[in-house]
Computed example of a mutant assay.
Amino acid sequence: MNLFAQGIAWIFDPANNTGNNAILVRLGEHVTITLLTVAVAVVIAVPLGLLIGHTGKGRSVAVGLSGGIRALPTLGVLTLLALWLGLGLQAPVIAFVILAIPSILAGTYSGVEAIDRATIDAARAQGMTPWQVLGKVEIPLALPLIVGGIRAAVLQVVATVTLAAYINAGGLGGYAFSGLANSDYVEVLGGSILVIVLAIAFEIVFAALQRLAVPAGVSAGSGRQSRRNTRSSAPRASTPVEGTHP
């Protein structure tokens, strides 16, 4: 039996599904940390991104800060926070929020900036206030890119949450650390497979949510425009001129 098959067998071994170290327990911890982290990052980054995209101010600062945040080593930040705050969920949540913010922030202000300015001007010409323009025009049209930023953040976080086990905060990463400590590479592989499967599941869910976030009018308009472009690009049959012979 090869190592991969052994890893699959380890996942379905009843011995690994009981007690505090059960796979379902670790999986629940991993999902909880991931969703909690992304939720906090959304609360911080989405309003800030909407403000930047709506006003057009602070974009360069946001890009610079996002680039700086992306360069931070998550394991180093996690270790420093754990030494400062102690063991528990506080340190990993803060570290992973820092990791998630840039993608959500970029997706949000890019989504607002990508809206055709003629659409914004038309909304204002109808007497909409700035808040109405933001709530009824900009947010709905930017929502697909906002969800796309959240989707990217979720994938980054769900993979990195494995580091939470480094400070005994739970998650599927515990199998990697304990397996390495005991030279049990089947356990390491089994835990890795679980993380991969969880990441794929999140990708499928958020890809569907991003598709659903596209406004119906925008989808229909895009389809009509695509059909018009197809018709206009199709070669036209030549009409014979009267009096000519083939």
Rank of each mutant, 00 (worst) to 15 (best):
F177P: 00
D184V: 07
E203W: 07
V197A: 14
S110Y: 05
F96L: 15
L80M: 15
F206H: 03
L155E: 05
L143D: 00
A106F: 08
G190P: 09
Y185C: 02
Y166M: 05
V197M: 12
K136T: 13
R151N: 02
I196S: 15
L172F: 13
I200P: 07
G171E: 00
G174W: 01
Y175D: 09
A201L: 15
P130F: 10
P102S: 11
D184E: 08
I196G: 15
G86Q: 08
A169K: 07
A95T: 10
A123D: 01
L72W: 08
L83W: 14
T79E: 01
L163P: 03
W84I: 14
L143W: 07
I101N: 08
G86M: 13
A95V: 06
Y109A: 02
G107T: 04
Y175M: 09
V154M: 13
V205Y: 04
I120F: 08
G149Y: 00
N182Q: 12
V133F: 04
A153I: 07
N168S: 08
V205L: 12
I193S: 04
T129S: 15
Y185M: 11
V195H: 04
L75F: 12
A159V: 10
I94C: 06
E113S: 14
E138M: 11
L194C: 13
V133E: 14
R124M: 12
L134I: 10
D121N: 07
A125E: 04
P102T: 11
G88D: 07
Q90S: 14
Q126G: 00
A181D: 14
A201N: 04
A100E: 04
L172N: 09
L145I: 00
I94T: 11
V93S: 03
A201W: 07
L141Y: 02
A106D: 10
Q126N: 10
P92G: 02
E113I: 12
V97M: 12
P102W: 03
V188N: 02
L72Q: 07
W131N: 08
L145E: 01
A153V: 07
